[in-house]
Write a protein that binds this DNA or RNA. Sequence first.
DNA 1: GCTCGATTCAAACGCCCGTTTGAATCCATC
DNA 2: GATGGATTCAAACGGGCGTTTGAATCGAGC
Lengths: 225, 225
Amino acid sequence: MDALSQDTKTRILDAAETLFTEHGFEATSLRSLTSAAGVNLAAVNYHFGSKEELFQAVLTRRLDPMNQERIDLLAQYEREAGGKPLTCEKILSAMLIPALKLSRDPRRGGKDFLRVLGRAYADPAPFIRNFLSAQYAEMISRFKDAFLKALPHLTKQELTWRLHFVMGALSYTLAGTDALKLMAQVMPQDKDNDEMLLQRLAPFLAAGLKAPLGDTKKLELVAGD
Amino acid sequence: MDALSQDTKTRILDAAETLFTEHGFEATSLRSLTSAAGVNLAAVNYHFGSKEELFQAVLTRRLDPMNQERIDLLAQYEREAGGKPLTCEKILSAMLIPALKLSRDPRRGGKDFLRVLGRAYADPAPFIRNFLSAQYAEMISRFKDAFLKALPHLTKQELTWRLHFVMGALSYTLAGTDALKLMAQVMPQDKDNDEMLLQRLAPFLAAGLKAPLGDTKKLELVAGD
DNA sequence: GCTCGATTCAAACGCCCGTTTGAATCCATC
DNA sequence: GATGGATTCAAACGGGCGTTTGAATCGAGC
């Protein structure tokens, strides 16, 4: 009864999280999904309305709490700092720690969920894009403000670009796709691997964020051919 | 006759590049694809064997020349340096310039192709993963060697991680997905936007690569809850 | 123990999918 | 101008898709 006794909605969400991870949204059929969840085929449309709404529900279940945790942690750090601007590393911690905690918690979907999220980032379907933008809006705006104070040498525009790069490295890394098999022979043990990961990611991103403004001469482009 | 006079294979590849960009691999049907290309439905299976092989052909057509260009440019820089190790920025240029040139050249698929590539990075389908690994193997290995010489303070393992982050930021940026609509109000003009982009990306990545090794204390994790 | 809304179920609906087939057409070669 | 391989074509194949339906079942409240 243990795992099977959950209610239908949860069973569907759990199965969807796994299968969307493995095959993506389009390639996952409701027939395989409901049969993996041990529920009737019609249950998805009854409880969620449609396959698209189910996908959004899969994301919301994990994303809402994680982003709220990020916002709360940032606020706590700011309270502790008593008005003084936070360091770059501290702000990054407020972003990374909730994500890492989620990835380590199998009861909240763990790495599976972060992989679904990583794929969603790259999906051009409008219903996904709009949904993600709305979900992240508040968190992004708060962290942008914090970074602006921590990095006074950056213009708003420059910071926006750099946050763009940060989100890229972060999503690629947390999703753990490693499309190019870079990590093939690098990881001897899986133990505390994700902790290591963020220990390495944070200094990399902090250095990038703190970098002086780019020299226009550094990247010379052959315009002609 | 101009655009329509191309041979069937090319017409299919062009239409596939566009449609895979807009809807992804699974969500693009051969019926819509062949009708957009103005060819018979059976033409894809006749010329490419299957939908999967068509997808690989779409990637190869652009990826092979771009990665060869990267390798050649790196070799040229190394020749010019005459044995001395290259700077981080110079090596990054050898990665970024061919990608940027491709993205600016509509005759080679331009941004459309890079978006297909960005999505492929996040796709878990084995036939895509294996294909990408093989395509990138040589380029990655050469650039890893170059970076190792340029960044002697990094271990091989640390460099592998940082290259992972670099590829993340690069693919997210070049794919131009901007899942979180960060850039909404930032881009006043589209002109030479991508040039600006890499002018900003290169310093960011160079600073990250050159960062000192991470302090284990910087990111404190609450292990318990 | 009957009622009634909530939930589950098997079955079907209509549609689109990737692929195959075999005949029709093209076109360089003899 | 007949030949024959390469290509195009319309049509069909078998199957899976998301969704809907209407009856069966459940279970708390009277």
